[in-house]
Design a protein around this nucleic acid. Sequence first.
RNA 1: GGUGGGGUUCCCGAGCGGUCAAAGGGAGCAGACUGUAAAUCUGCCGGCGAUGCCUUCGAAGGUUCGAUUCCUUCCCCCACCA
Length: 418
Amino acid sequence: MEFDSPELKKEFEHQWQIISRGAVEIIPEDEFKAKVIRSIKENKPLRVKQGFDPTAPDIHLGHTVGIRKLKQFQDLGHKIVLIVGDYTGLVGDPSGRSETRPMLSYDELMANSETYQKQFFKILDRSRTEIHYNGEWFKEMEFIKYMHLATKFTVARLLERDDFAKRFKNGIPISVHELFYPLMQAYDSVAIRADIELGATEQTFNLLAGRTIQEAFNMEPQCILTLPILVGLDGQRRMSKSLGNYIGIDESPREMFGKVMSIPDEQIYHYFELATDVSLEELKKIRADLSQNNINPMDLKKKLGETLVDMYHPGGSGAEARQEFERIFSQKQLPDEIPEIDSRQLIELEIKPEAIYLVHLMTKTGLSKSNGEARKLIVGGGVYLDNQRITDPDFEFKLSRDMVLKVGKRRFLKLKAK
RNA sequence: GGUGGGGUUCCCGAGCGGUCAAAGGGAGCAGACUGUAAAUCUGCCGGCGAUGCCUUCGAAGGUUCGAUUCCUUCCCCCACCA
């Protein structure tokens, strides 16, 4: 790289260090660098794109890996362009999928996109962010234009992708509409004139498609930056709402902290790296501590939980969540706040306070999904009333004083005698 | 369009006239253990105040004392052929 001035060089190196941190691939790197340099020279922000399909109502830590990278670009003065994939959401991204996604209704997508946006701006600065729905261009697009897009790709190229290849080989159906997904995402880049597009590693194909299509529209192709995939609570599969292994950024401090504590120890480092802002030095130390066994992983995990809670909740919540966790799990005490129910509310649920059938109480108050489950929990030894384990599935009692019901490790209910 | 093979409980997958709420595995839940998690072991794993009753095996009909199992039609998937 050649620089016109030392200032330029300095600014570029500053930006590049931030941009490239944590990235898996930058394609093509030289072109990317050239764009950054040009942007500095001409004082013209890069247009950095990332799209999100609102297929589920919550943003989780997995999403934040990309969003936080966007934030870094934003802080460097670049223009963030968020695409809400209302139309791509209808089609459903086949990336990393082993089967066709269920099609959502447009109404569902729109409802999700509202909560999405609210949550995006817990991280990004709204006033400096451009948002587009891709329906803006797809809604009015002529059929022939879709066909034009389709001429730019061959079936062989689409099918060589690992996810499709596997499905094809295993006889799992691939519908034609799924083949269109990458083309749609690619066209988004044309529509908003993207310079850069971000995505998780599994997005590489779609991101590269953007380059192809932009060139077909006589546009300078975008450069791409891919980021690691955050593994979910099970420690195995990617974090995703549909797998139920996610930590939502809108979850309560207590919930968030508890979920962090349940991740496998091996993931502690990755979570610090991908989901928090800890400095490079700290990261190094964490890695060393873990590999040399000179720290109890639990303590690091608590720190991780605290850090994450603080990132998404106002001051002090992290420490509180931690204390709460320690109180309940380490000291096996009661949480400081327990949902309450009084005798009047019980009567409304058709439960007589003078003769409470425990199974019904649990089901009607939502502590168990069905009477059957309640019985199983009782017989299985997971139910305590005032610290007394109840094992009789037919147990009945009279509510003559305040009592605390505990179901499993973390479900509590205070019964008020009043 | 033709031929063949399929659709089973959250997922995978056995069952092929009664002994089937349906083997086995996975996931999940609870318990024991523990420094959180994991690993391991144990139990549960459609609903019901429950040695019985009710609703399930792609959908609708039919045969039968009895159908997840047999027949018919329909829907969907896969392979090969076109």
